[in-house]
Design a protein around this nucleic acid. Structure first.
Lengths: 159, 159
DNA sequence: GAGCAAAAGGTGCATATACACTTATTACAA
DNA sequence: TTGTAATAAGTGTATATGCACCTTTTGCTC
């Protein structure tokens, strides 16, 4: 009876095998990708520091620069970001006077454009970005970097 | 005089060339990495849905499973995450009863371990993770996936 | 042992992210 | 033309992320 009870308890003590957990940590695409993103974002953020922009903000300005005038929905699709996340990120840069938000002809939509201040911030940040990007390219080597970028694009295109 | 003034104004209208902005969007390591991370995280989150865990939470439990008992600082270093971010993420899973936080022998430290509930959640989530991971592997093909993972590791190891 | 530097962790603040739900506008069909 | 479905966006809530600053504890030196 006592031994039965012990067996019952030991059933509750089931654990993921250590080997399995180790393997997961080494191979999980999501975990390793997020880890790299933390490292790389901090690298670009540090490089962009003098511009007052964070990497996420600079890339958002860049996307608008290319697509303006653009709606929230279209921009969200272009940068593979949830529409509501984009809405809030845009609002923040709008408060800083870098993005202009106007009603579109279709009144359901918003027409996003860069303000003069936004354009100037982007121009100022560019050489800092270029330097950071160059350092990564140099560290990885052009070939490995190109192949990596290709792999990353494959992930974005996941069905 | 009028033309001089116009020239002055046109200086203020400097813009990042469209070509340059396009090139940045296509090549920026940070932007493309973050884009992929959004896509991949949403993919794993969807797969893990039935377990009630998000991908970030499952990987945190896994890391603790491997290293327990572990301090905040050591765990943060292992998963390349800011110490304060980790602190808060650990607190959330502690509130859910999956992680136990105790004072270490050195009273400055915290000793993190999985609770029974944490172990069980991890065991339950594992097959869901395995399926998602398998689908990515299948979609990319083993070779491309392995080379991608290697590239991602290179990024993590950036100087 | 007193005092100070170093180490570990927490808190305040700000941004990034996305799901569920709501609101406003448009398009379309009966 | 009217009522309803579809579309675009905003809001509530929750988690993830990291910097600057603070508190507690330890270790070390005199």
């Amino acid at each position: 009876m006592a031994s039965e009870k012990r067996r019952e308890i030991s059933t509750n003590l089931e654990r993921l095998p250590l080997e399995t957990a180790l393997e997961m940590g080494k191979t999980c695409t999501c975990f390793n990708l997020r880890k790299a993103t933390r490292r790389v974002t901090s690298f670009y953020d540090a490089a962009l520091k003098p511009s007052g922009l964070k990497a996420t903000q600079m890339t958002l300005l860049t996307a608008i620069r290319v697509l303006e005038p653009v709606t929230i929905k279209r921009l969200a699709k272009a940068i593979v970001m949830d529409r509501t996340t984009l809405s809030r990120n845009v609002s923040l840069l709008s408060k800083k006077g870098m993005i202009d938000i106007e009603p579109g002809d279709d009144l359901r939509t918003r027409k996003l454009t860069l303000t003069e201040h936004g354009h100037m911030a982007l121009v100022a940040a560019f050489p800092l970005w270029q330097k950071a990007q160059g350092e990564i390219l140099k560290e990885l080597g052009t070939d490995r970097w190109a192949s990596l970028l290709e792999g990353i694009s494959d992930l974005v295109a996941l069905t």
